[in-house]
C-alpha cells in the first residue's frame, strides 16, 4: 500500500513564545516492509535550525529549533510511504526455546537493549503476574502471542485521559485502562519478562470510518505497538487492536520504550500560564 501521512502538532499559548526546541521522531525509517518515498517537516514560526541524524536504534532523530514569535507553535510533518505485507511463519516452539535462540541470533548489544527493563517498562511483580496469566515458558510461540493480545484486549479498556506520558506500567495495570502506548508497553514488558527481545514501535495506522460514514479529516492518531524477535524475524503485534501488524501499519521509529522515540518532545520558553495541545493525523491511501 502507498500512504500519505499528514501529522500536525499544535500548541497554543496565552503569551509570546520566546524560543522552541524540539526532538522529533517523525521521519519514518526504512524497514523490510516499508519504503519511504518522501518526507518533510515544516513549522510555524519558521524553522531556524533542523538536523536529522540516525540514532543508536537506526531511527531518524530530528532536532528542530524554531524562530521566536507568536503565541502558537505548529509542526507539520508529511510523508509518503510504500508498505508491503511481510508474513512470517511462526515456528511452533516454546517461548523458552525462542529466548535461547535469540541470544546467538542477535548482536549482544541489541539483545540486551531489548530484553532489559527500560525506564518506562519496569519488570515488576505485577507485570510478571500479568504475563504469567497469558503464557509461560512452555507455551508455543504462536499461541503465546495471540493469547497475550487477547488478554490485553480483555483486561484493559481503551480510554483516553486515564494515563499520560509519566504513567507507570503498574498504574496502567491497576487502572485496567489506557491507550495504545500503554498497551504496547504492556506487551513489550510481558515479552521481556519471559526473556524475549521486544521493542516498542511508534507509528501510524490507517483507520476506516464507521460503516456508512465518511472519514473525518484529522481523525487518525499516532499509534504504537510491540515488536518481538522470533526465529522468523521481528514480528509486530498490536495489542490495541488485537492483531498482528500488516501493510496498514506505518512505522516511524522503534526503541526500548516511548521515551526513546517520542514523536515530538519540545521545550518551549514562554511566560504563558496555559497551553493547549491539538494533534491532527491523516493517513490517506494514495
Amino acid at each position: 500500500m502507498r500512504y500519505h501521512v499528514r501529522h500536525l502538532t499544535q500548541y497554543r499559548y496565552d503569551d509570546e513564545v520566546e524560543a522552541c526546541f524540539n526532538r522529533a521522531y517523525l521521519i519514518p525509517r526504512e524497514t523490510a516492509g516499508q519504503q519511504v518515498c518522501s518526507s518533510s517537516i515544516s513549522a510555524t514560526p519558521e524553522i531556524q535550525h533542523l538536523a536529522t541524524h540516525r540514532d543508536c536504534f537506526g531511527n531518524n532523530s530530528t532536532s528542530i529549533e524554531l524562530e521566536a514569535g507568536g503565541t502558537q507553535v505548529a509542526i507539520l510533518s508529511e510523508c509518503e510511504v510504500e508498505t508491503s505485507e511481510t508474513t512470517a511463519e511462526l515456528p511452533h516452539i516454546p517461548i523458552a526455546e525462542v529466548a535461547r535462540l535469540a541470544i546467538p541470533a542477535l548482536n549482544p548489544v541489541e539483545f540486551a537493549e531489548f530484553t532489559l527493563p527500560s525506564p518506562q517498562i519496569a519488570l515488576t511483580g505485577g507485570l510478571r503476574a500479568f504475563a504469567a496469566s497469558a503464557m509461560d515458558e512452555q507455551t508455543p510461540l504462536p499461541q503465546a502471542l495471540s493469547t497475550l493480545l487477547a488478554r490485553i484486549k480483555q483486561t484493559f479498556a481503551y480510554r483516553r485521559g486515564v494515563t499520560g506520558v509519566g504513567t507507570t506500567l503498574d498504574e496502567v495495570l491497576s487502572a485496567a485502562a489506557g491507550v495504545c502506548q500503554d498497551f504496547a508497553h504492556l506487551a513489550v514488558g510481558c515479552l521481556r519478562a519471559l526473556g524475549l527481545p521486544s521493542r516498542y514501535v511508534s507509528g501510524y495506522i490507517e483507520t476506516s470510518p464507521p460503516p456508512g460514514r465518511a472519514k473525518l479529516r484529522g481523525a487518525d492518531a499516532t499509534h504504537a505497538w510491540a515488536s518481538v524477535w522470533t526465529p522468523a524475524g521481528w514480528v509486530d503485534l498490536d495489542p490495541t487492536n488485537e492483531q498482528f501488524a500488516d501493510s496498514r501499519y506505518i512505522t516511524l521509529a522503534w526503541g526500548r520504550d516511548f521515551g526513546d522515540v517520542s514523536p515530538l518532545r519540545g521545550v518551549v520558553l514562554t511566560e504563558s500560564s496555559t497551553s493547549q495541545l491539538h494533534v491532527e493525523v491523516d493517513v490517506t491511501a494514495v
Binding site: 502538532t9 500548541y11 503569551d15 509570546e16 520566546e18 524560543a19 507553535v73 499520560g164 506520558v165 491507550v179 502506548q181 499516532t222 516511548f258 517520542s262 514523536p263 515530538l264 518532545r265 519540545g266 521545550v267 518551549v268 520558553l269 514562554t270 511566560e271 504563558s272 497551553s275 495541545l277 494533534v279
Partner: peptide, 11 residues
Amino acid sequence: RQSARQVTEAR
C-alpha cells in the same frame, strides 16, 4: 531573564 520553560510532549 529568559522565559520560563514548558516541556511539551504529545502521545
